[in-house]
């Protein structure tokens, strides 16, 4: 058994989890909404990216257009569906979000068909050898994307006006508003970023598997929920660590834990164990 192989595979998977979960934790950090429909946005990214690639023939162009377009879609989604629910008790937004997720999956099935669709000519399928481990180019791109997008986000949050406004709003919305920060704008940008990241993850998963189906959002979405809780809801750094850790744990678990627990349940076993010891997650903000 090649341990470095398992480790690298796990880290790649962890990067995909990170791209999905960071958006989820951003939304939670700002609005205290468990945004289940995030999974629907992830799937939307996969469909749009795949169809655009097949239409235009350029994966790169389709990727950029999809990420931006789905980002804007996320803003509209927030404005239409979540904004009116902000002053309601938290379970209202949670259930509404579940309803939206179910509806989105069904709309994809009715519009795009229940059967999977694939790239006509999937790019990035050659394999290269990195430090003794053979990897598909697509997987390397996933890692680069996660580093660049999430790293870029961290720089933006620390150095720019809007980033500082965002952080101020997360720590105390009322205080931020009294300092003249436009809350609505911060929230829009928040949803743009979260949805764009989910779309990027969606396209990359679509490419790696070369198949898109209406229900592809389910399993990663549930795991992403476990990840953001492990990371201490709303904590981006904690979410990143939890995502990578889960990727690696699952990778080894597939080989060594298989007789005890289904792979998809590992995340939750880990989660419950952690919460019983640290009810605020591994990395709480306070």
């Amino acid at each position: 058994m090649n341990y470095s192989d398992l480790l690298v595979q796990g880290l790649v998977e962890g990067c995909i989890y990170a791209l999905i979960a960071v958006g989820l934790t951003l939304v939670y950090g700002l609005l205290r909404i468990l945004h289940i429909a995030h999974a629907g946005i992830f799937t939307l990214g996969a469909y749009v990216g795949l169809l655009l690639t097949n239409e235009t023939g350029s994966f790169a162009a389709a990727f950029v257009i999809t990420v931006v377009a789905v980002g804007f879609f996320g803003m509209a989604f927030y404005r239409l569906f979540y904004e009116p629910l902000l002053d309601k008790p938290p379970h209202v937004a949670l259930i509404a979000s579940i309803g939206l997720f179910v509806a989105m999956e069904e709309i994809y099935r009715i519009v795009f068909g229940a059967t999977s669709i694939s790239f006509l000519a999937p790019p990035l399928k050659e394999t290269v050898e990195v430090a003794g481990v053979r990897l598909e180019e697509g997987r390397i791109v996933v890692v680069i994307l996660a580093v660049v997008l999430i790293g870029g986000l961290a720089v933006l949050a620390g150095r720019t006006r809007i980033g500082i406004a965002w952080r101020a709003t997360v720590s105390d919305a009322a205080m931020a508003e009294s300092f003249g920060i436009d809350l609505a704008r911060v929230r829009y940008i928040n949803f743009f970023v979260a949805s764009a990241l989910a779309a990027a993850a969606g396209i990359m998963v679509a490419l790696l598997l070369n198949q898109v189906i209406p229900t592809m959002g389910g399993v990663p979405a549930y795991k992403a929920l476990a990840i953001i809780v492990l990371g201490g809801l709303g904590n981006v750094k904690g979410t990143l660590i939890a995502a990578l850790a889960l990727g690696v744990i699952e990778s080894f678990g597939t080989i060594y834990l298989d007789d005890v627990l289904d792979r998809d349940a590992i995340a939750f076993a880990f989660l419950i164990a952690v919460l019983m010891i640290r009810p605020q997650g591994l990395f709480s903000r306070r």
Partner: peptide
């Protein structure tokens, strides 16, 4: 919300 996700985890643990 922590309880919501914990109970969700219990569900997945059961099926898993």
């Amino acid at each position: 919300d922590f309880l919501a996700i914990t109970t969700m985890g219990v569900g997945f643990l059961f099926t898993g």
